[in-house]
């Protein structure tokens, strides 16, 4: 998609993420590290964005800012119209539970819980009753093709299946935004493709806004738009 076309299209769509002059500076001993350096970027409803760049370029830091996991040294961030850096810890946690689904590179499933129980975890913080939670969990796991693996423990699943459980966990609360940090980084190419297909389906069929950090050009090819970061700075399109 050409830049001008993209700009025309985004002009009429709802702005989901609005990062304004975000800087993140880490002080280490006597020197400072600029993880993000005056980054301004907008993501729109229904976007599937790939954030690429070398290690240490600030991709994960930006993702963490969007999830209100981390706070910037300077700058503002509005997500779905809310100034997320104004939240206190508790408000941020509750907001994340409602709005954000986070997918990690290393799956991060709880080893003693079954696939269904892992997926159910975020729902324990909601007002849903047991039956409603069960229905949500079944729906999420079926969506990622693991309806028959509900009672399996993570160690009984392959890497690709574990990541699909992690995706189910991320979408079970029906969040508007999915943030994926190297979701295919620990997977073989076949499993990676399966995971990317699921993300594509979630974006196209369910309208989820997806921001994916990746090193992998194949993974990036699934996104509508790719943005590059280098040394904490966003490269121009």
């Amino acid at each position: 998609m050409a830049t001008s076309e993209l700009m025309q299209e985004t002009a009429v769509r709802t702005k989901v993420v609005e990062a304004i002059h975000i800087s993140k500076i880490f002080s280490r001993d006597t020197f400072e590290v600029r993880a993000l350096d005056d980054v301004s970027i907008d993501f729109y409803e229904g976007d599937f964005v790939a954030l690429m760049g070398p290690s240490g370029s600030g991709k994960t830091s930006l993702l963490n800012m969007i999830a209100a996991i981390d706070r910037p040294t300077h700058g503002q961030m509005r997500v779905l119209g809310e100034n997320i850096f104004a939240f206190n810890d508790q408000e941020a946690a509750q907001w994340r539970n409602r709005v954000i689904g986070y997918i990690f590179q290393t799956f991060n499933l709880i080893p003693v819980l079954t696939a269904a129980e892992n997926v159910e975890l975020p729902l324990l913080l909601t007002r849903l009753n047991k039956q409603q939670r069960r229905e949500h969990v079944e729906t999420a796991l079926k969506l990622v093709g693991l309806g028959d693996r509900m009672t399996h423990l993570p160690k009984q699943l392959s890497g690709g299946q574990e990541q699909r459980v992690a995706i189910a966990r991320a979408i079970v609360t029906d969040p508007k935004i999915l943030l994926a940090d190297e979701p295919t980084g620990d997977l073989d190419s076949h499993s990676a493709t399966e995971v990317l297909e699921i993300l594509k389906m979630l974006n196209e069929d369910f309208g989820k806004t997806i921001v994916m950090v990746t090193h992998d050009p194949h993974a990036a090819s699934y996104a509508h738009v790719t943005r590059h970061l280098e040394k904490g700075m966003l490269l121009r399109l």
Binding site: A67, I69, D89, Q90, A93, Q94, R96, N97, R98, I100, Y102, F104, N108, I110, L121, P122, L125, R169, T173
Partner: peptide
């Protein structure tokens, strides 16, 4: 794991 739980929405008190 604590960080993962907090990412899902578990508060510090939880």
């Amino acid at each position: 794991e604590v960080a993962v739980l907090k990412t899902m929405g578990f508060t510090r008190r939880d």
